[in-house]
Design a binder for these strands. Structure first.
Length: 734
DNA sequence: AGCACGCCGACT
DNA sequence: GTCGGCGTGCTC
């Protein structure tokens, strides 16, 4: 009797064995979902193995209830990918597998295959053509519009229908029921290479051409390529040409981007270049059905370009031919809870597994990636100049705030530069990476500062909303009128955020059109897209905003960038702070002067001689990267060492710390592996739970992995009252 | 993670 | 005398 080995979404590091259902199973059922009894409930999991025997005693074995054969099974490559992630990140296989599936496949309801909305067409029946539109009630606007349009165009797809009215799908259903309209399958958009637009492609720079010429002959083999291009150097164009190559060979391309924000823009660019190609996007902003549609098209090999955020890295892609990770240095590729994977690293595994190239693109590669490039593990290609004719890198200057007065955190040279920009009708960007009005509310009498009661953090003043807010847990409370400690009225916001800078600039430039862009102002659905449009269409003069502005956008008429307050990160205890600050400033600075008008960047700082600002002024990523790498080498930090954290959360910090101490004491630490003392996390309390961690590191990734594996087995059986723990391999935050 | 079983405090 | 607190143990 065959035994089904099922991966279930439970935090247990085992598979569960089941007898096959009465309907039987076949070898083809590896990789399909099964509904099984589990404890008192039933659960849906994935069959990852079919065995001939079970170690579980026969009387305990239950019978699987149902095998879902509604969609094709997950291919062996996907199961291997999940197994790799489970082993490398030391996370239960069941959680890894179920985390990789769209929600619709995790439920215990069978998935009803509906015809994809894009490929259904509608047309009038004979009855429909004779029907009298005026007989339709006037308030049925959707129905009227649909019928009118159908009479004009004879066939339309559901996409077009939706554009006519939000209620189109409902109206269509009614019309179908009346037999006025019928559904017809439309031919899939043709994917023939000849359909690609080949005329009027942009001219390539020499460096772009070189990059393509170097990669193209090796487009069918695995290599990790670092495409290191300055801001505005046209990395996207290189992606497009390489994708086009693979499209001609009927291969799929997976494109990973750091944020949802960037998908619409990139999607538009890709669709414009490849109008007849099937492109799907995959990110957390989709509805369960949309996500399911995209996933299915990808899994069946119909979608040729898959554009998504980190979660897209788990999509089965039978014809994978190329992987692109844009802005590879971005932190958001690392998941910060549950399965703590790095989508960039998982993507490299996938490329290797499929034997296809992967392109890591960035203007400021992570030091890990850079190090791999200089040591030759990755192949590096440079794009050193901007792609737009006459566009040069902006001139970067520092304003020494030790001897230049600032008023409300803005110095006179910045004001002058903004004035000049306004006079020229060019746009400017004021970067301050801190949203809200002020980062802290202080009592000047007793020194009290408003703090979050659930987190170890200060509350941020949001003056416009008259609220104090915690940026970590979202808690908010009304703005107090007196100090709650001493009753004094002398409480005042201290420091500067986007709201405050916006207010200051509004006073200076009453006639300028100022737009604030941060998570608060872009929270409303589609707000950011609308704001982008306003910027592109020159309805804004000065942009005040956070890092949202830093990423990937082309503002053609933007000539000035000012950076107000970035010194704090210079002397942070986090050894990655400099790397991040540099990347961020380089990205923001890179917004200036992209369209061919000369750009200027002003940085207010008390440390203009700091090597980081020096490198920034020279646009010299390499020399700073070399310096930082040397520092990391001497200090024994990554990439010269491999790290992992054992993280523990508990209501009381002492419990978390003592759990970690026990965990550390119960294991023999092998040669070449170091285990450090438990310490409270940087943000020691978050949403009411105390957090601590323990650092483990080794020069040998293999030794570290072996140790973690053995340790985890012991941790699994360690009684952990009140404490929740996880392993974080290759941690980025401490 | 759920979910039950199980043994000790304040209530109809 | 019960209702219910959350400690401990199990899930094929």
């Amino acid at each position: 009797m065959p035994i089904l080995r099922v991966a279930l979404d439970v935090p247990l590091n085992i598979l569960f064995d089941y007898l096959p259902p009465d309907t039987g199973i076949t070898a083809q059922d590896i990789g399909v979902r099964a509904r099984v009894p589990f404890g008192r409930n039933t659960m849906t999991g994935v069959i990852v193995e079919i065995a001939t025997f079970s170690d579980v005693s026969p009387e305990k074995l239950k019978r699987a209830e149902h095998i879902f054969r509604d969609i094709p099974p997950l291919p062996p490559a996907s199961l291997d990918l999940f197994r790799f992630c489970s082993e490398y990140y030391h996370h239960p296989l069941g959680e890894v597998v179920m985390n990789g599936l769209p929600n619709r496949l995790r439920s215990s309801k069978p998935f009803v295959m509906r015809t994809s909305p894009n490929i259904l067409g509608y047309r009038l029946t004979a009855t429909g053509r004779e029907a009298d539109i005026s007989a339709i009630p006037h308030r049925s606007v959707a129905k009227r519009r649909l019928l009118k349009k159908l009479k004009e165009t004879s066939i339309m797809d559901s996409q077009e229908a939706k554009e006519l009215s939000k209620r189109a799908s409902l109206a269509l259903k009614e019309l179908l029921a009346l037999h006025w309209v019928e559904e017809i399958p439309l031919a899939l958009p043709s994917a023939s290479p000849s359909a690609h637009r080949t005329s009027s492609l942009p001219d390539l720079t020499a460096a772009q051409k070189n990059a393509i010429d170097v990669i193209a002959p090796r487009i069918t083999e695995f290599n990790t390529w670092l495409l290191h291009g300055v801001t505005g150097s046209g990395k996207t164009e290189v992606y497009l040409r390489l994708i086009s190559l693979r499209l001609q060979q009927a291969r799929q391309t997976l494109v990973l981007v750091p944020e949802i924000n960037l998908t619409p823009q990139l999607e538009a660019i890709f669709r414009a270049r490849f109008p007849s190609v099937r492109l799907v996007s995959l990110h957390s902003g989709l509805s369960p059905n949309e996500r399911m549609d995209s996933w299915l098209q990808a899994q069946q090999g119909d979608a040729e370009i898959i554009l998504g955020t980190r979660l897209a890295v788990f999509t089965p892609l039978p014809k994978l031919g190329l992987v692109i990770v844009d802005e590879e240095h971005d932190l958001s590729f690392k998941q910060q809870d549950g399965l703590r994977y790095s989508a960039r690293d998982v993507a490299i595994f996938r490329a290797k597994q499929a034997g296809v190239p992967i392109i890591l693109g960035s203007a400021t590669p992570s030091l890990e990636t850079y190090y791999n490039a200089v040591t030759g593990r990755y192949l590096q290609l440079q794009l050193p100049v901007r792609a737009v004719r006459n566009a040069t890198l902006p001139l970067i200057r520092c304003i020494d705030t030790r001897n230049t007065k600032t008023e409300e955190s803005v110095s006179a040279p910045v004001i002058t530069a903004l004035e000049k920009c306004l006079a020229l009708n060019q746009q400017s960007l004021v970067f301050i990476n801190r949203r809200g009005y002020a980062p802290v509310l202080l009592c000047r009498s007793c020194g009290w500062a408003a703090a979050c009661h659930r987190c170890a953090s200060r509350l941020v003043v949001h003056l416009r909303e008259k609220k104090l807010r915690c940026h970590h847990c979202g808690h908010q409370e009304p703005f107090p009128s007196l100090c709650p400690e001493c009753g004094n009225q002398d409480i005042a916001p201290f420091g500067h955020g986007t709201q405050r800078v916006e207010a200051t600039l509004a006073q200076h430039f009453p006639n300028a059109r100022i737009m604030r862009i941060d998570r608060d102002s872009t929270a409303r659905k589609d707000a950011w897209q609308q704001m982008l449009k306003d910027i592109q269409e020159q309805r804004v003069d000065i942009l005040v905003g956070t890092q949202i502005l830093a990423k990937g956008h082309d503002f053609q008429n933007l000539s000035l960038v000012t950076i107000l307050n970035s010194d704090a990160s210079l002397f942070s205890t986090d050894f990655r702070a400099s790397e991040r600050l540099f990347a961020q400033l380089m990205q923001v600075a890179g917004r200036a002067g992209r369209g061919g008008i000369p750009g200027e960047v002003l940085i207010q700082t008390e440390f203009p001689d700091h090597p980081l600002y020096y490198a920034l002024r020279q646009h010299d990523y390499d020399s700073l990267a070399q310096t930082l790498l040397e520092e990391r080498r001497t200090a024994g930090f990554p990439p010269f060492i491999y790290q992992a954290l054992l993280r523990a959360d508990a209501p009381k910090l002492a419990d978390a710390l003592s759990f970690l101490a026990t965990a550390s004491a119960m294991v023999k630490v092998p040669q070449q592996v170091e285990v450090f003392d438990p310490v409270p996390a940087q943000l020691a309390r978050l949403k009411g739970t105390e957090r601590a961690y323990l650092l483990v590191q080794s020069k040998s990734r293999k030794k570290l992995q072996e140790f973690l594996g053995a340790w985890r087995a012991k941790l699994d059986v360690l009684p952990n009252r009140k404490v929740r723990w996880t392993l974080d391999v290759d941690p980025l935050e401490f």
